[in-house]
Simulated scan of single mutants.
Amino acid sequence: MRLDSHQHFWKYNPQKHSWITDDMKVIQRDFLPEDLIPILAEHQIDGCVAVQADESFRETAFLCDLAEEHEQIKAVVGWADLGSDDIDKDLDLFASQKKLKGYREILQSKNVDYMLRKEFIRGIEKIGKRGYTYDILILHTQLEAALQFVKKAPEQPFVIDHIAKPNIKLGIWREWKKEMAPLAERDYIYCKVSGMITEADWKKWTVKELQVYLDVALELFGPKRLMFGSDWPVCKIAGEYEQVLEVIERFTDKLSKTEKEAIMGNTAAEFYGI
């Protein structure tokens, strides 16, 4: 199965989506399944994982509703306030949603202490007991804290979004590799090769400059814990869907058939229970 493990849908609202600044005008509009499904079909991709972009229960409900309507949406990664004292009640709200496979928060915008709070760890444990995964969205500067975080929940399936957003624009990778390595040593942690072109120079990125990051990710995690994600439509800031896909297709062409199939879909299918 070929899967896009990471993309978003939204009905654009300037207030709710204030993170979409004026230099991102290309994505200041609605992006819905009817926009993505033809692209998936064109590239023989069987389905996608819709990931939250707004921190609200309304967002989770919105994505779950879209998943019910479109069979190509194979899984949803929603949002919940994991540190809330009402977390059990909150999780109950969506317990019947079969395509809801995991949760995520925008940790990249929060202080590193946020993910180390005992209330947050309690929430992680609660979603784990219910069989949910957790997407870790962080910047490369938060990797040290992320290591402390995952050590507190060694039974929880985690996936690092966007290879932890290294500074590709400046070509900084050695320190990123050093801090990613202890995370990769833990077999319950996976990684998405996604979101790379938007961490490079939006106007001048090259496949060659991305190669070192892909090689490191493969070295650290192996194909069975790597998954392709387009980060559509955010990727449109720096390139089109087919450009992102081509980067990963070319990267995986050097691997065995089984290894390529893992990165292009089988790993995501296993991780999210698709």
Results as ranks from 00 to 15, higher is better:
residue 1 M to A: 11
residue 7 Q to N: 14
residue 9 F to P: 12
residue 9 F to R: 06
residue 10 W to L: 00
residue 11 K to Q: 11
residue 19 W to V: 09
residue 21 T to L: 09
residue 23 D to G: 05
residue 25 K to P: 01
residue 26 V to K: 14
residue 28 Q to E: 08
residue 30 D to N: 15
residue 31 F to V: 12
residue 32 L to E: 13
residue 36 L to W: 04
residue 37 I to C: 11
residue 39 I to D: 02
residue 44 Q to G: 05
residue 49 V to C: 11
residue 50 A to E: 04
residue 51 V to I: 15
residue 52 Q to K: 14
residue 54 D to A: 15
residue 54 D to R: 14
residue 54 D to S: 14
residue 56 S to I: 10
residue 58 R to H: 14
residue 59 E to F: 03
residue 65 D to V: 12
residue 66 L to V: 10
residue 66 L to A: 04
residue 67 A to G: 04
residue 69 E to T: 14
residue 71 E to R: 15
residue 73 I to G: 01
residue 75 A to R: 02
residue 76 V to Y: 00
residue 77 V to Q: 10
residue 84 S to M: 12
residue 88 D to G: 09
residue 89 K to R: 14
residue 90 D to V: 13
residue 91 L to W: 01
residue 93 L to S: 11
residue 98 K to D: 09
residue 100 L to T: 07
residue 103 Y to M: 15
residue 104 R to I: 05
residue 106 I to V: 13
residue 113 D to Q: 15
residue 113 D to W: 13
residue 116 L to G: 04
residue 117 R to E: 06
residue 120 F to P: 00
residue 121 I to W: 03
residue 121 I to T: 12
residue 123 G to L: 09
residue 124 I to R: 04
residue 133 T to Y: 05
residue 134 Y to W: 13
residue 136 I to A: 07
residue 137 L to N: 06
residue 138 I to C: 03
residue 146 A to C: 14
residue 152 K to A: 09
residue 158 F to C: 04
residue 164 A to D: 04
residue 174 R to E: 07
residue 176 W to S: 04
residue 179 E to Q: 15
residue 182 P to M: 03
residue 184 A to C: 12
residue 191 C to Q: 06
residue 196 M to F: 08
residue 196 M to P: 02
residue 198 T to P: 01
residue 200 A to N: 11
residue 203 K to V: 05
residue 205 W to H: 02
residue 214 L to P: 01
residue 217 A to H: 01
residue 224 K to A: 06
residue 226 L to Y: 02
residue 229 G to W: 00
residue 238 A to W: 06
residue 239 G to Y: 03
residue 240 E to W: 09
residue 240 E to Y: 12
residue 249 E to Q: 14
residue 251 F to Y: 10
residue 251 F to H: 08
residue 255 L to E: 06
residue 258 T to C: 05
residue 258 T to K: 15
residue 260 K to R: 15
residue 262 A to L: 13
residue 263 I to V: 11
